[in-house]
């Protein structure tokens, strides 16, 4: 009888340890889920710390200047597009026929005049016929924008994957914006930001030049009012030099 009671006690103790272990494991899982933002609360936190966008490609490993793009079109024309040194800005869109995220861009670019592309030339670049089907690209290609099938262009721009976009300022041959996006709206915002950032220094330079000109005009007017004109000897005196004492 005593042995039976002891055995039952041991079993109860072991079960208790098992339940405690399970509860601890459950608590650990809940804690980890909470950290990942998958809270079991009815109203999750408004903004997670990280925004995972699985369809967005990481940035390029290195930067490059703009490059002209050459290859063939899906209709088998030979094509060389001027980007570097062109008098306009060019949005080079690296797309593929297979990626799900790219389909949003193929559709957006099919619009007659996609809002946000004013003054910017769109050039779509896909891999060549060794990796893409020309007929498939032809069916996706938007009307009115050049589509170039070229593996060299992907290498020249060190493109990490699709979709990827590079905004090149032709006259300066600088890349003024680049990256990936999951929608046309997102890309448009990125482009607007890049264009604003690019034009800010020039605006600031113009403001400084204008302020200098205004200050010069004010100084000229004040000197003229004091009877000091161009070539007046007083303009060439050193104010720090002590006057010679009268003898």
């Amino acid at each position: 009888m005593t042995v039976l009671v002891i055995a039952e006690g041991v079993v109860i103790l072991l079960l208790g340890l098992l339940v405690a272990g399970l509860l601890r494991s459950h608590a650990e899982i809940l804690r980890k889920l909470h950290e990942l933002g998958a809270s079991i609360e009815e109203h999750p936190p408004s903004q997670p710390d990280l925004d995972f966008s699985p369809n967005v490609v990481s940035p390029r490993s290195d930067t490059t200047p703009g490059h002209d793009v050459g290859g063939v079109t899906p209709t088998d024309e030979a094509i060389a597009v001027s980007i570097s040194g062109a008098r306009h800005r060019t949005l080079v869109a690296f797309l593929s026929s297979g990626c799900l995220t790219c389909s949003a861009f193929w559709e957006a670019f099919a619009a007659d005049q996609p809002a946000g592309l004013e003054g910017i030339r769109l050039v779509i670049v896909t891999k060549d016929r060794t990796e893409e089907s020309p007929s498939r690209i032809r069916s996706l290609a938007p009307h009115g924008h050049p589509v170039v099938m070229s593996n060299d262009a992907w290498s020249d721009y060190l493109v990490p994957g699709s979709p990827y976009f590079v905004l090149v300022d032709g006259p300066t041959n600088r890349v003024i914006g680049e990256g990936s996006a999951s929608s046309w709206d997102q890309l448009r915002n990125l482009m607007q930001q890049a264009l604003a950032d690019d034009s800010a220094p020039r605006r600031s330079h113009r403001r400084r030049a204008r302020a200098t000109a205004e200050r010069d005009a004010r100084d000229e007017a004040a000197l003229a009012a004091a009877g000091i004109g161009p070539g007046d000897p007083s303009l060439y005196e050193n104010p720090e030099e002590p006057e010679e004492p009268d003898v």
Binding site: D68, V72, A78, I79, A80, V81, S82, G85
Partner: peptide, 16 residues
């Protein structure tokens, strides 16, 4: 392409 051989000068755009 098509019997044309062009070394495209900078600033030019070419289609055949």
């Amino acid at each position: 392409s098509e019997g044309f051989d062009v070394v495209v000068p900078p600033g030019w755009e070419v289609r055949v």
